[in-house]
């Protein structure tokens, strides 16, 4: 029992996997509904993606090609840690950083820039599964509100925002209505990624380990951010207010990706780079190839 390699394929025992699998199918059948499941303890912290990890380990099989990202990057500490653990406990799988090569992608806080396909599944790690928690602390009452698709209090909250700030101040985790009924917390993806939920060719699965919930946005399903008719949904704005131009990644030059902001240690000014490191690398490769 000294190393992770002594553990069974996929770490979890087969009963645990069966439970997760049954839960996932219910989640797809009831789009956006948070299906409770027992959620086993994983050898990394609750909050580090244990929900996503249980989904990945219950889905993954021999010959699968896996990509793991965090903040858009394959090489961030947590992504490396999760990938390493999955490689240890699932010896016959392949891993990749290239989005188009992956059959299964586990991610925290981002949806890859490159459009996903029908033969891919995206697993998102979720810290807070319930968008109603900001207006109702009791889960028992929230379940009733969800069942009745009663989101009036959430809309009031958005409206109060508009009154106070002339702007909806929700930055990430933007409440999004799935198939016209359940409103989900799409995990802490930026607003920029929310439109990718809509009519996605790929299945999107959401795992909240600590809160013991799984939910899904099936492929080709309606996903609408909660808004008012006269206030459009707005994604993060990367326009340079001085020049009026959309900022570009200083590395690959892309003007249509989500950007991370840095301070240039030499000039003290701000510089921007793609948050999705694989997308950025592939953009550069293409530029060099041309």
């Amino acid at each position: 029992m000294s190393t992770a390699t002594d553990y069974p394929f996929g770490f979890l025992d087969s009963y645990a996997k069966k439970e997760v699998r049954r839960t996932v199918l219910k989640a797809i059948a009831i789009p956006g509904y948070q299906v409770p499941y027992s959620s086993r303890e994983m050898p990394m912290g609750r909050g580090f993606g244990t929900g996503g990890l249980q989904l990945t380990l219950s889905l993954i099989g021999e010959g699968e090609t896996l990509k793991v990202i965090d903040q858009g990057s394959d090489d961030s500490v947590n992504a490396v840690n999760l990938r390493h653990f999955i490689e240890l406990t699932c010896p016959s799988i392949n891993t990749t950083t290239r989005t188009q090569e992956a059959t299964l992608i586990q991610s925290r806080h981002r949806i890859p820039e490159q459009p996903l396909r029908e033969d891919q599944v995206l697993v998102l790690q979720v810290p807070y599964p319930d968008p109603l928690v900001i207006v109702e602390p009791s889960e028992t009452r929230r379940k009733v509100m969800h069942g009745e698709a009663d989101y009036s209090r959430l809309l009031v909250k958005l409206y109060e925002d508009l009154v106070h700030f002339k702007e909806i101040t929700i930055s990430h985790r933007y409440p999004t209505r799935i198939n016209g009924h359940y409103v989900i917390d799409p995990s802490p993806i930026p607003r920029y990624d929310v439109p990718k939920l809509h009519q996605s060719p790929a299945l999107l699965l959401f795992g909240a380990g600590r809160e013991k919930k799984v939910y899904a946005v099936p492929p080709y399903t309606l996903a609408e951010p909660l808004v008012f008719d006269d206030v459009p949904f707005r994604t993060e704005d990367f326009t340079d207010r001085v020049s009026g131009e959309r900022r570009a990644c200083q590395r690959c030059g892309s003007r249509d990706s989500f950007l991370d902001e840095f301070s240039d240690p030499n000039t003290g000014g701000k510089v921007y780079q793609c948050s999705d490191s694989d997308y950025c690398t592939q953009q550069q490769e293409q530029a060099h190839g041309e």
Partner: peptide, 18 residues
């Protein structure tokens, strides 16, 4: 066999998704 059950599950996942 668990590897085969995993494959069957992935087909179920695909069936429910589409």
């Amino acid at each position: 066999q668990t590897p085969l059950q995993q494959q069957v599950f992935r087909q179920l996942l695909d069936a429910y998704s589409y």
